[in-house]
Each structure stands twice: as structure tokens, then as C-alpha cells.
Design a protein around this nucleic acid. Structure first.
Lengths: 197, 197
DNA sequence: ACATTTGTTAACCAAATGGTTAAACCAAAT
DNA sequence: ATTTGGTTTAACCATTTGGTTAACAAATGT
């Protein structure tokens, strides 16, 4: 179904840029190069179209996150893999993080709705692992949740707050992406240094 | 002007929660306990009301940020003061960061508009200072911009991605705020450990 | 060949929404 | 007491917006 895809991709772009409330069905139709009625023919209504887009967006990110939560690697290895693969991925979808965060904040019910899914990112195993490696004396005694927050903060924030950051530290889009490229390795080194005993 | 304040505070709450596009003038009027026409009497239109709120919001945060950019302290001291005072402040306005980031992303023109102000946060001095302390051998050789991004990421992200984080690591609002309280000291220690030579 | 389902459109509709108007209210000045 | 100025409201208006309808075209099955 060619048309359905065109709509979906148009919706993906528009929703990502304008958010749910800001997006206009007409704009999505124009972007897809079809009549507005087609939107409702293919995707009942705005909510459902948005939900499809949002779940797809989250579905793209979840595997990246789950990797770090589920794999058998050591903490160090996990952090290395995560920062690298997450940033690599997000460089290709630079507006995904802010989109997901924004809509989660604006529609808190999404959070619960999403946590009901089976493959939801669940950090409990990782947290146990951290606690264990602390006991073993591999890591300094820190709050595992804080470390988790660190990892996400360092990787996700620059993309989520892109506009503000670019403006504040005065870098072009190219320089910014260059910084992010450099950041893959950088984050890993910083975090390891700060938690290794 | 009692009414004007009531409107402003109502708008502050509603805009923060729903964003510019999501906020309804009627809702702001209800929240302020006045007639919708009063909004337009006091603040011409939605854009102007929003701009007042947004600039005020940013105006509250800017001093916190400028402190770290302008003071004469050492890097270590700056980071300590910043994380502590920023988080303390934001605990009282937990939705400010996401609000500012969201609207900056949705209205990129705000960024340029804001960068024109005189008291805009300007990190060049801090960056020079970092470069200098690296030369002096106090800090490891790192990219100063990365360090800057780290500091913001670690402090701001948890608030900006509040809904997602709370859901993912499964903490109540109280536990979350407790984590943030703990985080004031934690961030400082982590960063120092990772950059001190 | 023909009927039926599927895809597509232009025109239309009702509700929501930002914004306006004209009248009422009310305190202070005259 | 009356005027006058700002303040407040109810009712109204124009536009936008999500959504529908009915007609039409294009496949698709028989």
C-alpha cells in the first residue's frame, strides 16, 4: 500500500517537528501529496495516526535501550556499546528523542500505556548487576539509579535540547553532529573513569 | 494590578503543562478565574501572553546559568555551585526545563530572538577557563564543549525527561525528588572524578 | 462483460478556538 | 449627583480544524 506509507512517513515528519497538538492534518496530507480525506480513510483519526507514528518511533528506540538492559556483558562493555550504538542511531533520527520526551510529558498516559507492553525497557536487571559489581569491588559505591540516569542524560540530552544547546554554545548543525560523533567515545571514557574503583 | 498577575500565573501553569499549541485561552481564563475577554484586554493575544510567560521563565533560569559562566571561581567550585543551585531551583519549578526546551525546539526562532538579549548565557569565558586549566595540568585534556554539555545534561535532563524516567526506573514523584536531591552532590563528585588529572 | 470491492477526491459540516464588541460595573474626581 | 476612566463580562464573530459524505475512478474477482 504505497499511499499508506506516504502518509505514515509524512505524519512521522510533521509530528516530529510540530508535536501532536501542533501538527495539522492538512499539513500531513500536503506533505504526503494526497487528499486530506485519505488520512481518515487509512488511519481513522488524528489520535490513531499519531499513535501509530509514536509507537513506531518508540519501537525504533526501544531495542537500543533494551540491548543495554538485557545483554550479558559487563557494565563497562554495556556502557560502551550503548553510548556508541544509541548515538549512531540517533544521529540518523536527530528529532526522535525530543519528540518522544515531549509527547510523554504532554500525555502522561502514554507512559503507563507503554509500560504495559512486554518488551518495555526494564532496567531492574542492570541495576542488580551494578549493585553486584559494587559488592565485588569493581565499581565505586554509587546509587545504581544515578548511574542509569547519567548514562541516559549524557547520551540523550544533547539531542533532546538540540536547539537550545546549538544556540548557547554557538555551533552549526555540522559542528554539532561532529561533537556528537566525538561524544560516542567521550561519554564512555568519562563515565568509566568516574565509576571504576 | 491584581488581575494581570492572576492571569500571568494561570498562563504560566497552563503553558508549562500543555505547551503553546496545547494551551487553550479558555483554560487559562478559567484557571485565573476571570473572563476570557480579560486575557485579551491585559495581554493583546495568545502569542504575547506566551512570550511574556516564556521570557519570564527563561529569565528565572538564566541567572542560574550565568552564575557558572561569569563567576571568578575555579572550575571545580563552579561545577559544585552550579549543580547545587540549579537543582535546588528547579526542584521548585520542576516543569521549567522541559517547557523551555520544548518551546525552543518547536519555535527555533525563539533561540535567535533570545540570543540577542544582553544577559544571554554566554559560555565562551568558561570554555577559555577550561582550556587554561587543562594547560596548567589541573584538568585532563578534554573538549571543553563536551564538559559543558555534560554539566547541563546531568543536571537538566532528569527534569526534562521526567515522565519517561519516572516510568522507566519506576519511581514515585517523591522518590524522584529524593533522587534529585541526592544528585546535587552526586553530579559534582562524578564530574570532578572524571576530569581531575 | 459486469459487479464488487478498494482507493481517491472535492465539497461540506460541526465543533473548537482565538479574538472582538458593546454594554455594564465601579471607583475616583469634579 | 454626575462624569469619567479604567475594568469586567456576556454574547458574538470569523477562522481554523478534525472529520464526514457522496460521488467517482480503478482495480479485482467472477
Amino acid at each position: 500500500m504505497r499511499t499508506e506509507e506516504k502518509i505514515f512517513e509524512a505524519a512521522f515528519r510533521v509530528f516530529q517537528l510540530k508535536g501532536f497538538k501542533g501538527a495539522r492534518m492538512q499539513e500531513i496530507a500536503d506533505e504526503a501529496g494526497i487528499n486530506k480525506a485519505m488520512l481518515h480513510y487509512c488511519f481513522k483519526n488524528k489520535e490513531l495516526l499519531f499513535e501509530a507514528v509514536f509507537m513506531n518511533a518508540f519501537g525504533k528506540l526501544a531495542p537500543q535501550i533494551n540491548e543495554i538492559f538485557k545483554s550479558q556483558d559487563s557494565i563497562f562493555e554495556k556502557i560502551k556499546k550503548f553510548t556508541d550504538s544509541y548515538i549512531s542511531f540517533v544521529i540518523d533520527y536527530p528529532f526522535l528523542p525530543q519528540f518522544i520526551i515531549q509527547e510523554m510529558n504532554n500525555n502522561p498516559e502514554f507512559v503507563t500505556k507503554f509500560l504495559e507492553k512486554e518488551n518495555r525497557p526494564d532496567p531492574t536487571k542492570l541495576i542488580h548487576q551494578i549493585e553486584n559489581e559494587i559488592k565485588l569491588g569493581i565499581l565505586k559505591p554509587i546509587n545504581p539509579k544515578q548511574l542509569l540516569i547519567d548514562i541516559f542524560s549524557m547520551t540523550v540530552f544533547p539531542f533532546a535540547a538540540q536547539a537550545l544547546l546549538k544556540g548557547m554554545i554557538q555551533v552549526s548543525n555540522e559542528e554539532f553532529m561532529q561533537l556528537m560523533e566525538e561524544r560516542k567515545k567521550y561519554i564512555y571514557e568519562q563515565i568509566i573513569t568516574s565509576i571504576k574503583k
